Amino acid sequence: MQFKLIINGKTLKGEITLEAVDAAEAEKKFKQYANDNGIDGEWTYDDATKTFTVTE
């Protein structure tokens, strides 16, 4: 399945997509990506659109 991450950071904004088996795997990958890029914020997930959002 394809999942999307919307980044609303203080210095980094944008979207990325990835393939994952389920939402838990996608969340783990997205949070690792955010951590690697210094993004720390409030996370939400919309199951209907398979979209994660992180807002700093």
Rank of each mutant, 00 (worst) to 15 (best):
K28H: 13
G9P: 05
K31R: 06
K10W: 04
T44R: 13
D22V: 07
T51Q: 13
G14Y: 13
T51M: 09
L5K: 00
T49E: 09
D46Q: 11
Y45N: 01
Y33S: 05
T44D: 15
A26H: 00
K28A: 14
D40K: 06
L18N: 07
I7M: 12
L18A: 13
I6P: 00
V21Q: 13
L18S: 08
V54P: 01
E27D: 13
K31T: 06
L18I: 12
E25N: 14
M1V: 09
L12C: 03
F30A: 12
K28W: 09
A48S: 10
V54N: 02
D36A: 07
V21G: 06
Y33F: 05
E27V: 03
G41M: 02
E42P: 04
V54D: 01
A20E: 15
Q2M: 09
Y45I: 04
E42G: 04
K31Q: 03
K29T: 11
T17M: 06
E42Q: 11
Y45G: 01
D46T: 11
A20W: 04
E15F: 03
N37E: 09
A26K: 00
T51H: 11
F30H: 02
G9Y: 08
Q32V: 12
E15K: 04
T51K: 04
A26W: 00
E42H: 12
I7G: 03
K13P: 09
K28V: 11
A48V: 08
L5S: 00
K4V: 13
G9K: 07
A24I: 08
T49G: 10
F3L: 01
T55C: 02
I39D: 01
G14N: 06
K28Q: 13
N8M: 09
D47T: 14
D36E: 03
A20M: 06
G14I: 12
D40N: 09
E42C: 05
A26Y: 00
Y33D: 02
G38L: 07
M1T: 11
I7T: 05
L12F: 04
T49M: 15
T11W: 07
T17G: 07
I7C: 02
T17K: 09
G41N: 01
N37C: 03
T49L: 10
T49K: 06
G9E: 03
F30M: 04
D36W: 09
L5R: 00
K13E: 09
G41T: 01
E42S: 13
I16M: 14
D40L: 08
N8C: 03
M1G: 14
T49N: 12
V54Q: 01
F3E: 00
E42M: 14
T53I: 08
A48K: 10
Y45W: 07
D36I: 14
Q2L: 15
A34E: 02
E42K: 12
A26I: 01
E15T: 05
V54C: 03
V21D: 09
E56M: 11
K28R: 14
K10C: 02
K29W: 08
Y33C: 02
K10E: 15
N35H: 15
K31P: 00
F52S: 01
D36T: 08
Q2E: 11
G41A: 02
K4E: 08
W43F: 03
E27L: 14
D36F: 08
L12R: 02
L5I: 01
A26C: 02
A26P: 01
L18Y: 08
K31N: 10
M1N: 08
D36Q: 08
D36K: 09
Y45M: 03
K29Q: 10
I39A: 03
K29L: 07
N8F: 15
N8V: 03
D47G: 11
E42F: 15
I39E: 02
I16W: 10
A23M: 12
T53C: 04
T49F: 09
E25D: 13
T51G: 09
L5W: 04
G41Y: 01
N35P: 01
T55V: 09
E27N: 10
N35F: 11
Q32K: 15
L12A: 06
D47F: 03
K10R: 04
Y33G: 03
W43K: 00
E25A: 11
Y33R: 03
D40H: 11
T44C: 05
Y45H: 05
E19N: 05
T51A: 03
A34K: 01
E15N: 04
Q2T: 13
A23L: 05
K13D: 10
Q2C: 04
F52Q: 00
F30E: 00
F3D: 00
N35A: 12
V21L: 07
E56G: 02
K13V: 13
A48Q: 07
I7F: 11
D46S: 06
Q32I: 10
K28E: 09
Q32D: 14
E27F: 04
W43T: 01
L5Y: 01
N35D: 10
I7K: 01
T17D: 09
W43G: 00
D46E: 13
Y45V: 04
K4I: 15
L5N: 00
D40Q: 12
T17L: 13
D40A: 06
Y33H: 10
L5H: 00
G9H: 15
K28N: 11
E25G: 10
G14E: 12
K10Y: 15
N35G: 15
A23T: 12
Q2Y: 10
G9I: 13
Y45T: 02
F30L: 10
K28Y: 09
I7P: 01
I6D: 03
N8Q: 12
K13F: 07
A20Q: 06
Y33L: 09
W43I: 02
K4N: 13
T55D: 15
G9S: 13
T53E: 14
T44N: 12
I39T: 05
K31F: 09
D22P: 01
F52H: 08
T44S: 14
A34R: 01
G38C: 05
I16Q: 07
L18K: 12
E27P: 00
I16A: 14
G14L: 14
D22N: 15
D47P: 15
Q2V: 08
A48F: 15
N37L: 11
D22T: 07
Q2W: 06
G14F: 14
L12P: 01
